[in-house]
Every structure is written in structure tokens, then in C-alpha cells.
Amino acid sequence: MEEELINQVKQLIIDSLRIEGMNPDDIETDAPLFGEGLGLDSIDALQLVVAMEKDFGVIVPDAATGTVVFQSVRSIARYIAENRK
């Protein structure tokens, strides 16, 4: 997977969630996004869904897909790579 897309996803997380004082390098590519990882929750996840659609034209259609997609930065990037138009 392209490193550039991984970095774009990290920047998307920082921008859409308005995380202050964090750089893309601070986010581990394979760390869990929820719970002990970045500590995101369902409010954040929905914000990411909207941002992904706006920036990449990729839709997360349902909760089950979201559970798979939002495991880590890498899983988001993989989903974008497979589904963007």
C-alpha cells in the first residue's frame, strides 16, 4: 500500500477530528483507533465517515463495514484504495 495514502489518512484523522498538537508521524499505522489506541469513539468515527466521503469519494455504507474499516489507519487506507473512484 502506498505510504502516501497512509499519510493522507493520518492527516485526515488530525484535520477532521481537529486533534491539536499532533503530527501524522505521531499516529501508529497499525495501532487500534478505538479504546487504548487513539481513543476514538463512535462520534469520531462518524466524523471520519463524512471526511472520507468528502476527500476520497468513499462511502462506508453501514455499521458492519465501519467496524472493519476503522480498526486502524492501515485498514482505512486499504478500504480507500479498494473503493475510491
Binding site: S42, A45, L46, V49, V60, D62, A63, G66
Partner: peptide, 10 residues
């Protein structure tokens, strides 16, 4: 709620 498209139900 899930069938009607909810992103999360807790």
C-alpha cells in the same frame, strides 16, 4: 436502527 442505516447503536 441498524437495519435502517445507523452507524452505531449502543
Amino acid at each position: 436502527a441498524l437495519a435502517r442505516g445507523a452507524f452505531s447503536v449502543k
